[in-house]
Design a binder for these strands. Structure first.
Length: 494
RNA sequence: GGUCCCGUGGUAGAGUGGCUAUACAGAGCUCUGCAAAAGCUCGUACAUCGGUUCAAAUCCGGUCGGGACCUCCA
């Protein structure tokens, strides 16, 4: 199925035609590892994961997906120094070597990041590469030299800056974001750092070292400029090094359109001489918490840890996000999370019910069984797939999927049809990553509960309703629900 | 100051000129000794004011409200 995506470059939903025969090349801006990621960050990673999965499961493509780890930047340097309040015991003892501290500090948060994305349903095996910025310093320096040779950069005060004015003479700048430079907001700090640049729109490609900071040697134009890379350069260099330019899809949060992506694009065009860095630029909207942007001062700043502490299953969080389109702002509330959780369980129960009818015939990955799915219901699955192909419209796909579930009477299903349905649902789960197709795990019931239940069953057989109800209440008080069947009962945790 | 987005039922969230999702919660019913689970049914929502139109939640304008971005925030 052809996949359509909204492209920030054209402001339109367009069909994706991969540039290469073998695979779709996709690059996603990853985390800056100086803290735990918050749930807003996670939306970006879950979105990009789902896009990647749609390309595979619905588009039928192979995908080479790269997500970078930014392990060098101003905030990291600020926090990763000896004596910093942000330094945690788990990171070990800070040394006098700035680079070593940087490494210990960033590896810690990198590991935490990986744990977090895995728990919200990302599969590390889906990544073609997860490059660390500091491992591509050489490639970045190459690119900076190329840009400088093309007269699109200048050296000032031992740093290197991209010259936007020069670039604009031969290229369009502001393709992803309309910039109104005449009306920069008054009072906002224009110069975010202490480096010298000729124009406020210029940005640093390379920042000269300051005392105590980690640095790399850099020779350019016959000068030695020890320092570190600017923020935007890493994504340009790594997407080029690992995937080759242009790539098919570049993703990130809306806030990255400018300046980060705009500058990335300019660096690629100005340095590598390509017309495009990516065919598609895809940006996810932000997540809000209780109707407000997440911020520490509002006290609505949440990490995955905060949710887990409240007993929330990270997969429920993932699922809750998919109830909204990735380009809409999403209002995260605990109530909607509960709704998503119940909704996810309902489909899980359906899957297990169908599994119990299925003949277990595995036709994994084959769609030849489709005719076995009741035709009236099957159309909903088609619609669900179409919704996913149409700019990854997960809420519409879920609506169709729910309608599908409601349209199937599991009891009337043949074993063969049940298997066919399972195969179809597996394809959707390749996108949603929200369900399991392993058998229901039996839950260990404590012996005392079993004893009470047995006593109750006896009482019930004797039609001693009052005793039976009393025992049920007692079992309920201990956290279990009894469900009576025809000639047996089941216990479930409440 | 500039640029832009949004306001849909109790909640979340689709729809973007007529057919009006979906989920959760809630109500009623069926089933059940009573329950639970499940199934069925239901609510008649589109900020507000005006305009365009045979017809507007959907297009246009005003108002009110919320939000984002404007140099290193996903």
């Amino acid at each position: 199925m052809t996949i359509k995506l909204y492209n920030t470059l054209t402001r339109e939903v367009e069909p994706l035609t991969p540039l290469r025969k073998e695979y779709v090349a996709m690059y996603s801006c990853g985390p800056t590892v100086y803290n735990y990621v918050h749930i807003g960050n996670l939306r970006a990673f879950i979105t990009t994961d789902v896009i990647q999965r749609v390309l595979k499961a619905i588009g039928g493509y192979d995908v080479r997906w790269v997500m970078n780890i930014t392990n060098i930047d101003d905030k990291i340097i600020r926090d990763a120094t000896a004596g910093s309040a942000a330094w945690l015991e788990e990171m070990g003892i800070p040394s006098s070597d700035a680079k070593q501290n940087l490494r210990a500090f960033t590896r810690f948060y990198e590991d935490e990041f990986l744990k977090d994305i895995v728990s919200v349903g990302l599969d590390i095996n889906h990544f073609y590469k997860m490059p660390r910025a500091t491992e591509y310093i050489g490639e970045m320096q190459e690119l900076i030299r190329a840009i400088t040779q093309n007269k699109l950069a200048y050296i000032s005060d031992r740093s290197v800056y991209f010259d936007v004015t020069a670039y604009e003479k031969s290229h369009a700048y502001g393709r992803l974001f309309q910039i109104d430079r005449e009306n920069f907001r008054e009072g906002v700090r224009i110069d975010a750092d202490e480096y010298d640049r000729e124009s406020v729109s210029d940005f640093a490609l390379w920042k000269g070292k300051k005392p105590g900071e980690p640095f790399w040697e850099f020779e350019i134009e016959g000068q030695q400029l020890p320092g570190r890379p600017g923020w935007h350069i890493e994504c340009s260099a790594m997407s080029h090094a690992l995937l080759g330019l242009p790539i098919d899809v570049h993703t990130g949060g809306v806030d990255l359109r400018f300046p980060h992506h705009e500058d990335e694009l300019a660096q690629c065009c100005g340095g590598y001489g390509v017309k495009e860095q990516a065919s598609f630029w895809v940006h996810n909207e932000h997540l809000e918490v209780e109707g407000k942007k997440m911020s520490k001062s509002l006290g609505n700043f949440l990490t995955l840890r905060d949710l887990v502490k409240q007993g929330i299953d990270p997969i429920d969080f993932r699922f809750a996000l998919l109830f909204a389109h990735y380009r809409s702002k999403l209002n995260f509330t605990f109530e909607s999370l509960k709704a998503a959780s119940a909704s996810r369980k309902r489909i899980q129960e359906f899957i297990w019910d169908v599994m119990s009818v299925s003949d277990g015939a595995s036709t994994d990955g084959m769609i030849s069984e489709r005719e076995s799915v009741p035709a009236a219901s099957f159309q909903y699955l088609i619609k669900a797939a179409e919704a996913l192909a149409d700019d990854v419209h997960t809420p519409r796909a879920l609506a169709e999927l729910n309608t599908f579930v409601g349209s199937v009477s599991v009891g009337e299903l043949s074993a063969h049809s049940a298997s066919a349905i399972l195969n179809e649902l597996k394809i959707f789960n390749d996108v949603f990553g929200a369900w399991t197709f392993s058998p229901r795990t039996a839950i260990e019931v404590p012996a005392e509960i079993v004893l009470l239940a047995e006593k109750r069953w006896e009482a019930r057989k004797m039609k001693n309703w009052s005793e039976s109800d009393r025992l049920r209440d007692e079992i309920a008080n201990r956290g279990w629900t009894v469900m009576d069947g025809k000639d047996s009962y089941e216990l479930e945790p409440r």
